[in-house]
Design a protein around this nucleic acid. Structure first.
Length: 267
DNA sequence: GAGTTTGAAACT
DNA sequence: CAGTTTCAAACTC
């Protein structure tokens, strides 16, 4: 397969059209990889593509702020790895702050080689990580949240953030963690009504609460008992930890607040 | 703005 | 495939 045949030549013609090109490129890459592409379906307008895996700025969270083109800050000659957001989204760097960026027309051959190498090691490298569900987005606008019903193709592997921070790709994509995730101490899973409940009511307070929960997780509230292997059972276990027998956890104080809050919300 | 933390990507 | 390292973004102070 001529994986390197993905040519952002079109993009190079007019890099200023990149926001539009982004999705097309993502789709093209997958087609080049011989795979169907979820973005070719109606879901493309619903679920953020890889390009919008949204390393959004903090103040962009759920606020509907316009999505500006990202400006990566790669160093170490690494603009040709998936570490680089622009590379991952199939774009040239444009007004980025990268050091020694090879991702431009001048180094097209090098860049193409890198694309090929990346695809060689991972055919899905440029596929959107978020697969949409057939139900589209669950519009929860009253609470200021549009919850995507997509699913992370690989799942996240968060350990300390509780999947409540932007380190978490699921969180970034505004989707719930699924059985694909191998996260620990997850607080963003299906069935976790409390997580969604957090979005009802005062947004700032809820975000503060999420922050608190995340902090609790970070500071050890996950605890030894919070780690489990099977994702599904893990989710249940996490729920149990939140709503049930967390008493054995010495750092239960923060979770205790969360528990009280959740109980109130759920009533 | 500097330093730390985090988790994905890359590497071994 | 699992463990480790590298990397850049998120986050804290």
């Amino acid at each position: 397969m001529d994986v390197a045949s993905w040519s952002p030549a079109a993009a190079s013609v007019n890099q200023r059209q990149q926001p539009q090109i982004k999705q097309q490129v993502a789709a093209t890459i997958s087609v080049a990889a011989g795979q169907s592409h979820p973005l070719t379906t109606a879901s493309s307008s619903v679920v953020k593509p890889e390009s919008l895996k949204a390393k959004t700025r903090p103040n962009e969270l759920n606020d509907g702020a316009p999505k500006k083109q990202k400006h990566s800050n790669c160093k170490h000659f690494r603009c040709l790895k998936l570490y680089c957001e622009c590379f991952a989204s199939g774009m040239y760097c444009d007004e980025c702050n990268c050091v020694n960026c090879y991702k431009n027309v001048e180094y097209e051959a090098v860049r193409r080689d890198s694309v090929g190498a990346t695809l060689k090691s991972n055919l899905n490298a440029f596929r959107p990580k978020i697969n949409s569900s057939s139900h589209g987005a669950k519009d929860n606008k009253e609470a200021g949240e549009v919850l995507m019903l997509g699913k992370h193709s690989k799942g996240c592997h968060c350990k300390r953030s509780g999947c409540l921070r932007k380190y978490c790709e699921c969180f970034q994509a505004n989707i719930l963690c699924s059985e694909s995730c191998k996260c620990m101490g997850c607080k963003k899973f299906k069935g976790s009504e409390e997580r969604q409940a957090l979005f009802h009511g005062d947004y700032a307070n809820n975000m503060a609460y999420i922050q608190q929960a995340a902090n609790a997780t970070t500071t050890g509230a996950i605890g030894s008992s919070g780690y489990a292997s099977a994702p599904v059972s893990k989710k249940r276990k996490s729920q149990e930890l939140l709503l049930g027998s967390t008493a054995k956890d010495p750092s239960v104080h923060s979770l205790g607040h969360l528990q009280q809050f959740l109980v109130l919300v759920l009533q």
